[in-house]
């Protein structure tokens, strides 16, 4: 692929997931891929940040220093966002939404640091969608009981139940596909630019990085968390 294309410096276009090594588990070959490694790096960074914040918060001062200020700002912004869209249910879900928000955000912008974004793998975003689905389902059953759940399924008339079921199942799929396809398209774009225009890709790809990695990643993170909150809130309020 890629030979004979103008301006190509011979670099190959590479945005696929690669297997790093494989092992046998119950007779099946299981691959450790670049996604695992990138996710591990992201998690290590987040853990280091969390430990640093915890250490700072143990000796928290009345007048915050720089690092304490940053940590407080992040928590305040997340709390504000969650309270604005969930109202009185916010306290219960602030932890989960905040965690997911930070994880997806760091995953999306890890493309800036030369990693392959873990969210550009459907195996990462689909579990996130399934978690949202589980939250919706669980809260619907918990707060509206079985009768309310069945009533919600037969919304206008009982004959609409199959359509409502399809609509419910479509939620995690569309949520995860949206996040996956957005990050993947950014990754593919950058790979194409670095692969096909490698001779003239000097400084200007930085602007594209700002759009595809920072802007798009942040928007998609916001959208994922916002939709999760809206769906869960709807499930609770009925």
């Amino acid at each position: 692929m890629g030979h004979g294309i103008l301006l190509s410096g011979g670099a190959d276009i590479d945005f696929m997931i690669h297997g790093v090594f494989s092992y046998k588990l119950f007779g099946q070959t299981v691959w450790i891929t670049t996604t695992h490694i990138c996710i591990l790096i992201v998690l290590l960074v987040l853990m280091a940040f969390g430990i640093a914040v915890r250490r700072t918060m143990k000796h928290a001062t009345e007048v915050p220093g720089t690092f304490q200020n940053i940590a407080e700002l992040i928590v305040e912004k997340l709390d504000g966002m969650i309270h604005a869209s969930m109202g009185r249910n916010a306290v219960k879900f602030a932890n989960y939404i905040g965690t997911v928000f930070i994880f997806i955000l760091i995953s999306n912008i890890s493309g800036l640091f030369g990693l392959r974004p873990p969210t550009a793998d459907y195996g990462v975003t689909f579990p996130l969608g399934v978690m949202t689905f589980t939250l919706i389902f669980y809260n619907k059953l918990k707060y509206q009981k079985v009768s309310g759940f069945i009533k919600g399924l037969c919304d206008p008339w009982p004959i609409w139940a199959p359509i409502n079921i399809i609509g419910d199942i479509a939620v995690p799929i569309s949520l995860s596909l949206r996040l996956f396809a957005n990050v993947l398209s950014g990754t593919v774009m950058m790979a194409l630019i670095y692969g096909l225009l490698s001779k003239i890709a000097i400084i200007w790809p930085a602007a594209l990085h700002v759009y595809f990695d920072l802007f798009s990643g942040a928007i998609q993170t916001y959208v994922f968390c916002m939709l999760t909150m809206t769906y869960v809130n709807d499930a609770i309020e009925g």
Binding site: L177, R178, A181, N182, L184, S185, Q220, Y222, V223, M226
Partner: peptide, 16 residues
């Protein structure tokens, strides 16, 4: 931005 990101989904299905 929220509405646009949701509207973008159909285009992304085509891309997929």
């Amino acid at each position: 931005l929220l509405g646009q990101a949701v509207a973008e989904t159909t285009g992304l299905y085509g891309l997929l």
